[in-house]
């Protein structure tokens, strides 16, 4: 069958190449969306396990209150470290890191003193939330930042990404079905004599259909594979330029699609191609 498929496919290689190109374009959209979702998920996971909180202190808080609070935090189970950052130190860190003249021009009281708290990795979100509630009622505490809001926003963004990816997957599915269906109809038309000859010498419907189904599967898989290749090259080019910036901004390095996802996409392309080819041929009265 492979020989027959190769024999038939060789003579129609232009049609096959055009089909694979069209499928690649469709799959690039899906793969891009999956790439964004994958990296968003990584950022969300990174920030949901940030393991730290910032306790902003009131300007009126005395040194004794701050020291007591620091000691109390250090003694709290789940807390690994509590570091006091004065307003001056906060200003120094921000101005030196950002090197922004506008930030440097801000008055010293624009940078509140705080206690940076580090937690053990296994501290649950509920424990962190209840600790934040208790800290907020203390007279020396202005506010508590647990970075949960960032995680929530990222989760919301991720949800949007997943929805967009699902929509894209459906569009890609329609595109794949349309492209492979049209290609099969065209190939069947071009190989009308071949099909006729096969039927005349006693080929079963399955025997006639098999090369077409294999070609459909190959086109689908090759389209998905081609899309991954193109996206991979683009990803490497972009990552080389922005890797460091993204790491410092988000705390995680951008990553390409995991191997199971990439393989799954190729398998999806192959399966879609095979099923579409089979359905198209079934609908054609000749085969």
């Amino acid at each position: 069958m492979r020989l027959r498929t190769w024999r038939a496919g060789r003579s129609d290689w232009r049609v096959q190449a055009l089909s694979i190109f069209s499928l690649s374009v469709a799959f690039v959209c899906l793969a891009s969306a999956l790439l964004v979702v994958t990296n968003l998920a990584a950022v969300r996971d990174r920030w949901s396990r940030a393991g730290r909180a910032t306790v902003y202190l009131r300007d009126s808080a005395s040194e004794t209150e701050v020291a007591d609070l620091q000691r109390a935090l250090e003694a709290t189970p789940g807390v690994t470290r509590a570091r006091h950052v004065s307003a001056a130190e906060a200003r120094r860190e921000v101005v030196s890191e950002g090197a922004d003249s506008m930030l440097a021009a801000l008055p010293p009281n624009a940078f509140p003193a705080s206690i940076e708290v580090s937690f053990e990795n296994d501290l649950s979100d509920d424990d962190l939330a209840s600790m934040a509630v208790k800290l907020r009622v203390l007279p020396a505490v202005e506010s508590v930042e647990t970075y949960a809001r960032w995680t929530e926003r990222l989760s919301a963004l991720l949800g949007g990404g997943v929805t967009a990816s699902t929509c894209l997957a459906l569009i890609v599915l329609c595109a794949v079905v349309s492209v492979i269906g049209s290609t099969m109809r065209l190939l069947l038309h071009r190989r009308k004599i071949e099909v006729e000859v096969l039927k005349l010498v006693g080929a079963t419907d399955g025997f006639v259909r098999r090369p077409f189904v294999l070609e459909g599967a190959t086109q689908g898989a090759a389209g998905a594979g081609g899309a991954l290749l193109v996206l991979g090259v683009l990803f490497l080019m972009v990552r080389g330029r922005f890797d460091q910036e993204l790491v410092s901004l988000l705390g995680v390095a951008p990553s390409f699609l995991p191997v199971p996802v990439a393989l799954g996409m190729v398998a999806l392309g192959g399966a879609l191609g095979a099923i579409t080819a089979l359905l198209t041929l079934r609908r054609m009265a000749a085969v």
Binding site: R7, S11, I193, E194, V197, L200, V201, G202
Partner: peptide
């Protein structure tokens, strides 16, 4: 198909696949 495998058919218009080799055209049977 089983019936047709027991019958050889020769047509006026040959019914060969032009892009195939002579061998392929015969071997398909």
């Amino acid at each position: 198909p089983a019936l047709r495998r027991n019958i050889g058919f020769v047509f006026q218009d040959f019914k060969l696949v032009p892009s195939w080799t002579v061998f392929d055209n015969v071997a398909i049977a």
